[in-house]
Design a protein around this nucleic acid. Structure first.
Lengths: 341, 341
DNA sequence: AATATTCTTGCAACCGATTGCGTAATCCAG
DNA sequence: CTGGATTACGCAATCGGTTGCAAGAATATT
């Protein structure tokens, strides 16, 4: 369609070009553009002026090589537990958006890696490639061991997720155990006794929610029935998963605690389609409080994770770790948001 | 919490270390790891072996500097038209996910830039920083001129969006004009005559959908009423926008064509809350066909954009452009998905 | 006016790879 | 056994910046 202007010199400007235009050495240009105060203001301004009007931009490869830092953070999303390749949970979008804000605000860039079928050593390669200064992992998926191994020698690593047993890596997340308990207690308080649990149990954060669920049941003296637990992926794309399977198997239940809002919303939809009224016949509680939970009809009751705060904490911890301070994990309190289900 | 093993040497391995371990020069190691056939197989395998077991990973900064390519693609999301900082439209998530697949499949990485308040020169800086080999822009937002300017001298740039008037940059997108017409024709076929249009008209793709809307009205001999057009952002966070304003202003309408599914879904919700039944009183058609449109109750009728194909085309065009072939824009056909609204 | 001090600015080494070119080693035919 | 072709591999330049060190210029001190 269009062609780059062929009269434009093909070779990109380098610092030496600016230097010769100004009549100084590259040392001076480098220092001037870095705002080093040893360069007199007048000269610095002249250099900045010329650099700007000639469209010069510092080569980040060269700069990174010399300075041994890239100003890039790797955000990795492992999808070991997902069958499909797609990230469909809006939770990720909101998280990515928040992280992008925090990272950009600190003058860094965000390298996004979707790790679909985690190969051994993916984290090692990420950490050692020198392409990034730190790594954020969103969700442990089934990569607990890989994370532990990497944390052994790589400091600037922060993981969003549950405080899994024996985790030696730094995590940020809500108290999943408390969240699971809160959700279950809420359902119990509504008089529900046969509460189904839906979620992918391989993920540590889900496992903790499940523990909270068990704990609340036990505390209320309600017998735990294993047939009420259905493993799913984070998205309910496959009808052989989740509520539908419970219905098909003839399991009777009067409430659903879903490990994510997406599962919860899909459950509501399936229940409605099956003629089971929500919330009169079956109550549903989700987890995350994605934007959608509030907007759907009926609006989903859920356990809220404050992602803005979570993202800020993750980035804060990561930068402290990049600075050599091996900051510890942080846990935030979730809250119950009662809506219509 | 945990501390990186302090007995581990602090300095990272470089190629020279591997070279001396094997007893060859860095040239040989470099060639061996690159799979260069001039290195005998036996030696290559020995080098690979040692590199692997010592956990060596090539420094991408150095490699990039020397080779003048980074194997990174910049995916930029300009949000000039958005008031808030948040990307909330799931459209972006699906698009990012698809692009990530395509880019990863070619052995490249994805640098994600959320361009919240576009400063002059943001694209220039991106292109000249040598941090990436190519740039994909998701949505033109209000950055049409900036894109045109950059395309003048920067080849590897592909934009998702509408084929805006006077665009000299390479775009991939659905035929927004046809999509707007299809949506409107569908509503007209249902007998609707007072069809409202909701969307952010600064974005070229939305402007084209709007043209299609006008065209369909004209073709059907239905008078165009400017009071039926309400400008919004891509998300309906502000109640002073969209349907609610039409209702408040007492504008009568029997259908809504929303420029995105998110606007459409929010409209359905507001209409329901206002006691206007969908679809008996008011019909609604959205645009995008995000996963949510299918799952919501009632399921949203919409114009489908095939994002899997779109992402594949964008990446294909970008790689051809990176190879110096200035491939032209591509346009795909949207399709009408009739559901319950 | 001579010396001490402070300002400016450039030289050159370095970051860690890749690669053109040249040479030593090996092979093969005559 | 020798000359020429081939193979294997290392030297050193290069990519484009940053920065310790030091020299020369300008200013201050006595």
């Amino acid at each position: 369609m269009n062609a780059p202007d062929s009269s434009e010199p093909i070779r990109r400007l380098k610092m030496a070009d600016i230097a010769s235009m100004v009549g100084v050495s590259t040392s001076t240009v480098s220092r001037a553009l870095a705002g080093n105060p040893v360069i007199p203001q007048a000269l610095r301004e002249r250099i900045e002026e010329i650099a700007r009007e000639s469209g010069y931009v510092v080569n980040q490869q060269a700069r990174g090589l010399r300075m041994q830092r890239t100003h890039v953070i790797n955000v990795a999303i492992p999808l070991g537990h997902e069958s499909g390749q797609l990230i469909s949970d809006p939770f990720f979008l909101e998280m990515i958006g928040r992280l992008a804000d925090e990272i950009t605000a600190r003058g860094y860039e965000l390298l996004l890696s979707k790790v679909a079928a985690p190969e051994a050593g993916w984290l090692e390669r990420m950490a050692r490639s020198q392409r990034v200064d730190g790594v954020l992992v969103i969700g442990q998926s089934d990569q607990h061991d890989a994370l532990n191994a990497a944390a052994e020698w790589y400091g600037p690593l922060v993981v969003w997720g549950g405080a899994a047993e024996g985790a030696r890596y730094c995590t940020v997340g809500v108290d999943n155990f408390a969240g699971g308990r809160m959700a279950t207690e809420h359902l119990l308080a509504l008089g529900r006794r046969r509460i189904a649990f839906l979620g992918p149990p391989q993920a540590p954060e889900v496992a903790l929610r499940y523990e909270g669920y068990r704990e609340a049941l036990a505390a209320a003296g309600v017998a735990y029935d294993p047939t009420l637990t259905a493993t799913t992926h984070f998205t309910l794309s496959d009808p052989s998963e989740g509520v539908r399977r419970l219905i098909d198997e003839g399991v009777s239940f009067d409430a659903v605690f879903a490990a994510s809002d997406l599962i919860g919303l899909e459950s509501v939809r399936i229940l409605a389609a099956e003629g089971l009224e929500v919330p009169s016949t079956v109550s549903v509680v989700g987890f995350d409080d994605i934007a959608l939970a509030r907007q759907s009809v009926p609006a989903l009751t859920t356990i809220r994770q404050n992602l803005a705060e979570g993202a800020a904490r993750m980035v804060d911890l990561l930068f402290r770790r990049m600075a050599g301070d091996l900051a510890p994990s942080a846990m935030m309190q979730p809250s119950l948001i009662v809506r219509q289900t």
